[in-house]
Design a binder for these strands. Structure first.
Lengths: 162, 162
DNA sequence: TAAAAAGATGTTATGTTATAACATTAGCCT
DNA sequence: AGGCTAATGTTATAACATAACATCTTTTTA
């Protein structure tokens, strides 16, 4: 059991690779699960993966309109609900926004590090902390269904620049 | 360093005591800090402390109207902003709602256990977990400004009843 | 293969949460 | 009195999200 490794936001990383991995993994998972990654859902997922910044539902709506002029809020929210239910994206509660999930289909307890400066969100799965949390919940006799652990602050890259 | 003790929601607890403690502590803290716990702010704080359930801004608005017919959304949100800035309440990000803070003026990293059944929110300060989190943040070289750790599930009391 | 069921999307309307912007008031300091 | 700051009043609107019902498409099954 170790501390999780830094995954983002590295300004030099190959983002096309992130996107490609996310989309192909999503496609495989949906096939394996017998659920449909329809064109709308795929487009929304792709838009979310355009960057590592959390993106708002109405931003997605604006950005999908060139492709789908008839898109309405429900169009987006339904796609988001699906993607969340499949663990392909996360909702960032403290921002009312959404980010792509880097570990779809696995684990699903994550720490989100949200940079106030660059808006990028880093997802981590810090095992030691999560074990301690599990223990705390056990001691409280609280049965957890979902967990939101969201830290706002300044990421290393932005701190270095300043 | 130990696991934090259960504080709530205990159906048999003396809630008048909670309220009294919260309000007198708030008054003292504000005096000490040279900030004003005005009538509006006091009323909002009192309304929030009516229970251990998270309460929505517009619920507060409805409930304050008998006392203050002219109350508007801004009336409430400004009071909430003040109370949050003084650490007297917490915003529950995942509910868009607010709860009274049990440890005003102290610490301020807290775990919120949110019961889906009774809606009550328990605030804990689990030292082991928070140390592990601090270590994780350090390893990520992320400078935290604020932390939201919110767990949704079923509390002991509701689990026992079922 | 036709009918039924389930899943996805279209469409309209509305509900909910939150803030901006500017005016007014109250208390305090000089 | 004049000027400052903090708080509140007031109007309007922005931002976020869902309900409800219609339609279409795919799969199931009688």
């Amino acid at each position: 059991m170790t501390l999780s490794q830094t995954q983002h936001p590295d300004p030099a990383h190959d983002h096309d690779h992130c996107v490609h991995t996310a989309l192909t993994t999503a496609a495989h998972l949906c096939t394996a699960r017998g659920v449909q990654l329809t064109p709308i859902r795929h487009q929304v997922l792709e838009l979310i993966w355009e960057s590592h910044k959390a993106v708002k539902a109405y931003e997605l709506l604006d950005r999908i309109k060139p492709l789908k002029a008839a898109a309405k809020p429900a169009t987006i929210y339904r796609a988001l609900d699906f993607l969340i239910s499949q663990g392909l994206i996360h909702r960032v509660e403290s921002l009312n926004a959404f980010i792509g999930c880097r570990c779809s289909g696995r684990s699903h307890e994550q720490l989100l590090l949200i940079c106030k400066h660059c808006q990028q969100v880093e997802e981590r799965t810090p095992e030691i902390m999560l074990k301690a949390l599990a223990k705390e919940l056990q001691s409280a006799q609280f049965v957890a269904h979902s967990k939101a652990i969201e830290i706002h602050g300044i990421c290393k890259q932005c701190a270095d620049k300043a």
